[in-house]
Design a protein around this nucleic acid. Structure first.
Lengths: 155, 155
DNA sequence: CCCGTACTGTTCATGATCGAACAATACGGG
DNA sequence: CCCGTATTGTTCGATCATGAACAGTACGGG
């Protein structure tokens, strides 16, 4: 089974020496595959699975301004408007005016939103396990640390 | 009505215990940040930087069918059509008919495409270095191995 | 007190990708 | 030989995030 790479072989995945060692390339590849796999498994919750990270962020940081939330999930302020519009229409999220500053709106999770998060989180952890199959606990810890480092390097 | 729940001070990045330990979440975050950083730095090459990985793949696997290329970069066949249209219009790529099978078209890199790749690859490596700052050689090797494992797990 | 600056959320046009179609072609069992 | 099935590249409508605008609001120096 330790056969050298043969580009003419049947179902072998294509590679390139120039990019096979690049973390930035594999990062993109892994993210695309992971994202698709999660959305392919979890159905029947509307847009919630796609924005589960955001919902968790709102749950654990209640009453934050949209700008901070956008920065936290690495999205534009303008993108978050549409997303929150939909999550609010689905009754998962609530925008409240703050008395001190009439510009900002605080974002809160509704009880329904909390229930959806509680239902979705176990599925996310199952997906996480499928993702990281074959990796030891220390591998996963180093993996996570490396990802955090990348985010920190480019912020 | 709204209790100011903001114990954190100043410019601390928002977090959530539920997702801070999730590789799938951080994977997405890191990829978004990395992608933006690369495109923000490299300018003046049209659409080539965005599809540098694809171009390298074509260069090192000349004459592959579009389907094969699409699978390799984790994109849909239909998405690759538009991409190759543009790269071909820019003179970087060439589609050739194959005599054996009139359905498929082999994709080749033009000499101009080769030159562009040669110009872009050093910048990609500089970006790679910025990405992985603070990571040791073994850290980077394990990082890469973990990313490959993720891709393999979900394929 | 003003006025410029900075920040809020928002709108709109643009580009990228997807998923479901489609015609053309290859191939193999009956 | 024929007909069903699979595969090729392609088109088209829908969805999503972006970046540049915008009006409204806060705030501090002159």
């Amino acid at each position: 089974m330790t056969e050298p790479v043969d580009p003419d072989a049947g179902t072998a995945r294509l590679g390139s020496p120039a990019i096979d060692g690049q973390i930035s390339y594999k990062l993109r590849l892994a993210q695309i595959v992971a994202y698709r796999a999660f959305e392919g498994v979890v159905t029947g919750f509307g847009a919630a699975p796609r924005y589960l990270g955001l919902l968790c962020l709102i749950r654990d940081n209640p009453g934050q301004a949209q700008s901070r939330l956008a920065e936290a999930v690495a999205l534009q302020r303008s993108s978050l408007v549409t997303i929150l519009d939909r999550l609010e229409a689905d009754g998962l999220v609530e925008r409240r005016a703050v008395s001190g500053d009439r510009r900002m709106k605080q974002v809160w999770l509704t009880p329904e939103g909390g229930r959806v998060v509680d239902l979705l989180l176990p599925q996310a952890e199952a997906h996480e396990a499928a993702l990281t199959a074959g990796l030891s606990a220390t591998d996963k810890a180093l993996f996570l640390r490396a990802l955090d480092q990348v985010v920190q390097n480019l912020s």
